[in-house]
C-alpha cells in the first residue's frame, strides 16, 4: 500500500490574492522579513494493491487529469510505502 502526499500550488506566474492578503497581515503583525506568501493545497491519496511503478503512473495521471488544473497550477508529490 502506498500513500501519495500531493502539493498543488498556483504557478509562479499566477497572482495568489490569498497569499498577498496573508502577507499583508503578517507585515501588520511586525514580520517585516516575510517577502512572499503563497497558499496551496495538500492532498493525501492511498493506493492499494499496486507496485511502486503503478502507483507513480496512477498518481501522475490523477494529478494531471483531476487534482490540478495545468492552466494555473503546478503539482508535486511524494510516494511512501505504508502498512
Amino acid at each position: 500500500m502506498y500513500k501519495a502526499i500531493i502539493d498543488v500550488t498556483l504557478k509562479q506566474s499566477v497572482l495568489d490574492p490569498q497569499g498577498v492578503a496573508v502577507k499583508g497581515s503578517l507585515h501588520s503583525l511586525g514580520y517585516e522579513s516575510v517577502s512572499d506568501v503563497r497558499i496551496g493545497k495538500r492532498m493525501e491519496v492511498i493506493l492499494e494493491s499496486v507496485t511502486l511503478a503503478e502507483a507513480e503512473r496512477d498518481i501522475e495521471e490523477i494529478c494531471k487529469k483531476v487534482l490540478s488544473n495545468p492552466v494555473i497550477e503546478d503539482f508535486s508529490y511524494q510516494l511512501e510505502e505504508v502498512a
Partner: peptide, 10 residues
C-alpha cells in the same frame, strides 16, 4: 481555453 481564479479582492 483558460481557467478561473478567485476574485482578486477575495
Amino acid at each position: 481555453p483558460g481557467a478561473m481564479l478567485q476574485n482578486d479582492h477575495l
